[in-house]
Each structure stands twice: as structure tokens, then as C-alpha cells.
Design a protein around this nucleic acid. Sequence first.
DNA 1: TCTGGGGTCCTAGGACCC
DNA 2: TCTGGGGTCCTAGGACCC
Length: 443
Amino acid sequence: MSSTNFSKCTTFGIIDCNNFYVSCERVFQPALENQPVLVLSNNDGCVISRCNRVKALGIKMGVPYFKIKDLVQKNNIQVFSSNYALYGDMSRKVMHALASLTPKIEIYSIDEAFIDFSNFEPRDLIKLSFEVVEKVKQWTGIPVTLGIGLTKTLAKVANHTAKKLKIPVFDISSQTAQNEWLPQIPIEDIWGIGRGWCKRLHAMNVFTAMDLKNQDAFQLRKISNLVLANTVSELQGKKCYDLEEGVSPRKQIIASRSFGKPLTSLTPLSQALSFHIARAAVKLRRQQSLVKDLMIFLDTSRFKNRTESYRASLTISLPIASNDSRILIGATVAGLQKIFKEGKEYKKIGVMFLEIVSKKHLQLDLFATPSNPKEAKVMELMDSINQSLGRNMVRIAAQGHLPPFIQTNRKSQSYTSCWKELLKVKASFDKMTLGTSRIPSFK
DNA sequence: TCTGGGGTCCTAGGACCC
DNA sequence: TCTGGGGTCCTAGGACCC
């Protein structure tokens, strides 16, 4: 391929933070750098982030913590409850750095972003990629891996390969690289191939990324679905997914939590539900949207037997779409009473905003009274107070006191979101020699 | 004793209409 | 009482992602 042709090719990069939550904890506690570390989900339930040493011990993603406690003790693994405020802030820092170093990015998840690498000469591209990895680490402390390919799916494959090879950058754009590596990648490691498809593809003697690439996307479409056919096309280098810039508003917002200990009576359940509705409403207002239909749900433990288990949900349609926490909470109180059943041990409650509309396109009911603009001001004011003084500083009375239902025993400090918990750095200057490059020691 | 939370997209099938 | 064929829209649920 001539270089003129090459410059017209679309090329994608994907950058992925290594063991993101663990890496965030390590930034603020460098002593953890060479120790085994893992991070747990809400209520310290499951393992959701592991450093390489923990992975090597065979501790799988999503495994319940109580099942590995012995292993943790034996190997002296440092365990953290999740600290989402911290991870969110670190994510913003990483994305900001990335945006300043590359032409165009799409934030794909808390720890991943696609990059538009089109129109680069291969040599420049590799040089830039190494620079990006180095600068992100230098500016944020977070180690990252970068994969490059002709499509998003191939870039993901490249990223996966880089991690396997323990190198910071890997480019799978060339046919040579694809011929060498695709036969070594099992289909379960491909973006978009989950457990269900994996099983069916195995039955068709498709085991590796190369096997899948060699399928006829058109024929496969007839017995599968669009997503799988697109994955095959993308492995063949035919672009199906573009870079999506800007943040698109959520089409659905969910807020729910499991309880540390089961709840049995209506009042605390109602408070917990109000708490989640208020959280979801903040997200709704942030993206300038309103909700028309919402669903509340209630659940006992997933792991109970059938006779004891109970789950129920109720969809509520508002007469006029709203984002006012008071209206949303008010609308659900009666609904919760309807689905609540006495004598059950509830483990989880939550809300889903299903039908979300833009504030600009609000349809008024023929008989509805238009909302008072002063009412909207109340929510604005509440959000701004909570933003500057801390979450939940002002809340709706129905939420009751702060939720006692979430258990986190091993949370690190809120280094980036709470003045009282800023990192304290003590420098001792006694050993420092002026005029040399020696750095003071930090405690 | 102890098992996360938040999203997207697609498809099948039912209801309803002409 | 018997009986066609096609279209749209909506919803629940599945599969996948991080």
C-alpha cells in the first residue's frame, strides 16, 4: 500500500487504564506499588479490580469476597472498598490529558477512550502513541495501555494483545501482525463476544479471532444478529462503528443499591428508594432532561430459594415529564406500598428512569398547568449547594437521615473530593543538601 | 453470615390496525 | 361460523459491555 493511500485509512486507538481502581489507590499510596492489591464492590461484596499479582493468584473478577478471605490473608493482599468519587476524578484527569495529546477522543467508559488516529504516517503514529502513554502516566500517575487497529474491534484486540505481552503499545494494523496474532486470540477475548455466542460459535468450530475473521458476515447474519455480523466485518477491517464525539445524554438512568443487611419494613425501604430517586434526578438535571416513565423495583436476595424470594416492579407514568426530586419521590410513595409485601427480607431497591425526554422538547398535557419557574429554581439551588458543600448537604425530607444501609469498611480517603481528607505530605529537609539534585524524603 | 451497579442495543412476539 | 395478509408500534427480555 502506498503511503498516500495509507494516509486516507481510518485508524483507531484505544487506551485502557491498567487495573484502574487499583491504580487509583496506588497513586495516593505509593507504598502499595509492589504489594498485592484488590478493590471490592459496594458493601464489600465482590472483587472488581485486581493488580497483576492478585490476578496471578487466580482470584477472578466478580468473585464474592467471603470466598477468598483465606487467600487474602495468606498472601497479605491489601483490600479496599470502592471509592467512586476518587475514581471518577482520576478518570476525568486521564481523559483531560488524553484530549490534550491527541486529535479526537471518545470517552467509552470510566477507564477507556477511543482515539481517532486517522491520517497519520505509521512511524509518527507509533511515536505519538508511546508519548501518550508516557505523558498520561507522568501527569496522572495512572499506567495505561494503547492498542491500534483499522477498526474499533481490531484496536481492542491490539490492546488485549499489548496487555498479554506486557508492552505499552501494540499496533495490529498490518496484515502481518494480524496473521501472527489473530490465531492466538480465543474468541471469548473479543469485544462483543460474550458467553452465549462463545458457546454457539465453538459448536461451529470457531475458536480463535482468525476463525471468526474468516467467517462470511452476510451468511452469519442469517443465523445470528447484526452485532455479531458487525464484529466479523470489523475483524476483517471493514469499519462498522465510528468515533462518537461529545457526551450523548443517557437514554436510561438507573440508581439502586444492595443493602449491607436486609431490610424488612416499609419506612427504611421508602427512605432508601427516595435516596436513589434523588440521586438519579441529579443526573437527570445535569443532562438537562426530564423523565416521563419510571420504574421502581424491590428485590430479596438473588441467592435465596424460590419460596423465600420475591421481586416486584411497578412502572409509573407521570402526567407531565419532570426532573423535580420532590415530584418524582412523591409519585412513587403509593407505588412502593403496592408492591411491598410483609414478611420478606429485602436486599435491594432502586429506580429506573425509562422514558427520558429533553427539557427543550417538553410536551405539555392539554389540561396541565404549566410549571412555575420558581419551582425549578429550588432544584437548581439545591444542586449548587450540594455541589459546593458536599453531597446530600441539602436533601428531600423523605430520604430521612443519611442511608445506613451501605457498608464500606475499607474505603480510602476522599483525596480529591473532601478538604478534610486531602493527602498530607510531610517533607523532612534535614537530609537535603542544598545545591544538589537530592530530593527531600516524604512521609 | 457474607454474592455490585449502571449502561446499550437488538429481537421476538403480542396487540392492534387496515 | 368460516377466513388473509401485511404493516406498525410497543414491551419484555436477552446478550453484551465496563
